[in-house]
């Protein structure tokens, strides 16, 4: 499986809210939706938890470690250089 993005690529997390459309299980936290970050590392490929959670046949998807500026997401302490580093599946990402 060839990863679509590589380390250093700017990516955008889809601003999608499947939990509003019905029962689902997703591993992309709410606070990242619509946010942009940078791929830190390709972590490998894993079976899609969104299907595994319902015992459906689950395709393998590329998983990335993506780095986000923390103050841009939670601006309570905007003076710090802090970051959020989160595992995000490829189907949640677009090129930024």
């Amino acid at each position: 499986m060839t990863p679509r993005f590589s380390a250093g690529t700017r990516v955008l997390v889809k601003n999608d809210w499947p939990e509003e459309r019905g029962p689902c299980h997703i591993r992309t936290p709410h606070y990242l939706r619509g946010r942009s970050g940078q791929v830190e590392r390709v972590l490998g490929a894993f079976r899609n938890p969104e299907d595994l959670a319902f015992a459906r046949p689950a395709e393998t998807r590329v998983l990335y470690h993506v780095l986000f500026d923390q103050p841009g997401i939670f601006p309570t302490d905007g003076h710090t250089p802090d970051k959020l580093l989160v595992e995000v599946f490829e189907h949640w990402l677009e090129a930024a």
Binding site: R27, T28, P29, L43, G44, F46, P49, L63, L67, Q70, H79, T80, P81, D82, K83, L84, L85, V86, E87, V88, F89
Partner: peptide, 15 residues
């Protein structure tokens, strides 16, 4: 310390 970059790692998936 303020000059340290703090990286909060949210363990969301398979690692």
């Amino acid at each position: 310390p303020d000059d340290i970059e703090l990286r909060v790692v949210d363990s969301t998936a398979d690692y």
